[in-house]
Design a protein around this nucleic acid. Sequence first.
DNA 1: GGCTGTGCTTGATCTGGGTCAAGGTCAAGC
DNA 2: GCTTGACCTTGACCCAGATCAAGCACAGCC
Lengths: 247, 247
Amino acid sequence: MPQRQLAFPQVDCADCPIRHRAVCARCESDELEHLEAIKYYRNYEAGQTIVWAGDKMDFVASVVHGVAALSQTMEDGRRQMVGLLLPSDFLGRPNRERATYDVTATTDLQLCCFRRVPFHDMLSTNAHVSQRLLEMTLDELDAAREWMLLLGRKTAREKIASFLSIIARRDATINQNAKSGEVAFDLPLTREAMADYLGLTLETVSRQMSGLKRDGVIRLEGKRHIVIPDFDVLMDETGDDADGGVF
Amino acid sequence: MPQRQLAFPQVDCADCPIRHRAVCARCESDELEHLEAIKYYRNYEAGQTIVWAGDKMDFVASVVHGVAALSQTMEDGRRQMVGLLLPSDFLGRPNRERATYDVTATTDLQLCCFRRVPFHDMLSTNAHVSQRLLEMTLDELDAAREWMLLLGRKTAREKIASFLSIIARRDATINQNAKSGEVAFDLPLTREAMADYLGLTLETVSRQMSGLKRDGVIRLEGKRHIVIPDFDVLMDETGDDADGGVF
DNA sequence: GGCTGTGCTTGATCTGGGTCAAGGTCAAGC
DNA sequence: GCTTGACCTTGACCCAGATCAAGCACAGCC
């Protein structure tokens, strides 16, 4: 478990991903020193566990690059992913001493960490930070509710299509790689992790991926690289409203 | 749609349920006037729709009594409940103009409403309120993640048992009615609403309720009144860890 | 009293996705 | 070049829960 501490007080806020930079909104103010004093980086390898549910967790963090997953496991081993953290997402609860979920790196991962207690103390004095954190938490709640619809009511095929569209929309690489409406990206998850995300078995994930490929909705280059010839066709498979749902 | 406005500026903060009172933490300060100036009550009947997804929503609210549900509906009518609001729960997003979900009253309901824009403005000046709101939102996110495990991985019987234990634990009436470890309460939802909560059909809900009754895990007095002779026996049916999961 | 509508239960049958099992692909290490 | 192990695919079969259908319980109303 190599937990190298990189830069410490000399970290420049410009390093931070967008949302994290929003947390540091008062970069010009004297609060910056305070923020930086409790900030450090950690790196993890794909597959590593960052914390187990119930472990002490003495930091909160922002994802710099890579992907992390929050999951819950039942006594008999059934497993459900309940959070997927991409760059700029926030990890941890400032006022909670122990982790509620297993946290794992599904790709190589870099976190920008803040010591938990000083960070929590800062919330009461810094309205901008706690407001921004509220915004982010509300967004995550919306994402969780979208996810609940997927888990409770969608078919296996709709689940896969929805998952692919979620990753495609959030993956920063897609826009540059796009040629003539085509969208391409690498899956940051194994088939098993996808199954845990979607409430399926890995066999069903595999079969449905093959089905979408057979029907020309996606192309597979290797196991992990996805090409979507026509994003609208994929969206038709998700079961979601064509529009963003806004009337 | 009778939306009677009850008390207005003369409302006493003592009326407010616990969490809402926390929002008014500065009752003694001069901010009270500000809070009350934007506060009013609304009543709804069981079954009424409060707002539809996509509608303008010019208030946020705290549930005073009764139960409200947030749900999402797919084009073909498949429906998933994504939030169940009991007394003291918070409804709405201060900075969002339109509702994201259908909101319905599943029982007779009273809301304590705040005009959205003034409430949102208040957040930036009142650290206590926004911090408290952050706490509540994080709790809701945890509840949503528990719910995701239920939707993705639990069997129909485990879903029903989990649902009953959730309601039993949150229903304020249960503690007084308890005699010798027995727990009793009224279901605030129809079988159909339970099905929407659990990602099942109403027939499966009915069958599993009958199953739990046949096996002596619960007693049914009428359609809606539940008696749980031994709460531990019910918990064994949920699939959850015996303990709260805290190591 | 009977009628109507809403909510609930139960039975018969069907099917999507789980389970079990075999084998394929590919990269790393000897 | 062979072995090993991680990851993925595919096939055969099965079952939990969906679907379709009938009927019950009970409150409100004429």
